[in-house]
């Protein structure tokens, strides 16, 4: 019998596991209570979502892995991931899920949670600022083009005031650092 076998005590291993008890076991409940999270738990990890996704090969976490991470409570990893922001929102994963898990919608939920915690890519903050300030993402700059086509130079009926009013009271205001 070799020395190694005679040793007692805990076995030696290089594995450094994730301690599940340190994860946020409430996270899946949070997601489930969100607008499209109800079917979350129906996931049986078949990976159809990942198969359907046109860009997941670019990702460190695949869609099915993100759902698993939600189920396991890996809240921080999910909310700080670049993947949720890169989601094309093309809904192909959601369309094909055999268990009707609303995968794309759940990623929307995750983005909202991330936004609440201030984890938003800069360019998206830029868009939010546009919206908060101008009430629209695109404004007419070349009105001669419109006129050439017989359109009114100013868009009929356009008024961004309503939107600006609304966004002053919601999270967007917080995101763009507006006054509360």
């Amino acid at each position: 019998m070799s020395d190694a076998e005679e040793q007692t005590g805990p076995p030696i291993t290089l594995v450094e596991p994730i301690d599940v008890s340190k994860l946020d076991s409430e996270f899946r409940k949070t997601i489930r209570s969100m607008p499209n999270g109800e079917e979350l738990m129906a996931c049986f990890a078949c990976s159809t979502c990942t198969a359907a996704c046109p860009i997941a090969n670019q990702w460190d976490y695949k869609p099915h892995q993100l759902i698993r991470m939600i189920l396991l409570g890996m809240r921080d990893d999910v909310l700080s991931s670049k993947e949720i922001w890169e989601c094309l929102t093309c809904f192909q994963c959601q369309e094909r899920c055999p268990q009707k898990v609303r995968v794309t919608d759940i990623f929307f939920d995750c983005k909202n949670l991330a936004a609440e915690e201030g984890m938003i890519p800069d360019n998206i903050i830029g868009l939010a600022r546009e919206l908060a300030e101008k009430g629209q993402l695109y404004v007419v700059t070349a009105d001669w083009e419109r006129e050439d086509l017989g359109l009114e130079p100013e868009v009929p009926g356009l008024s961004a005031n309503g939107i600006r009013e609304i966004l002053k009271t919601t999270r967007t205001n917080k995101i763009v650092g507006g006054e509360s």
């Binding site: 596991p17 994730i18 599940v20 008890s21 990890a45 099915h64 698993r68």
Partner: peptide
């Protein structure tokens, strides 16, 4: 209990 999750490719420890 540490379990290997083959879908996440991660080791998870449960108490």
């Amino acid at each position: 209990v540490t379990v290997y999750d083959s879908l996440l490719n991660k080791y998870l420890r449960h108490n």
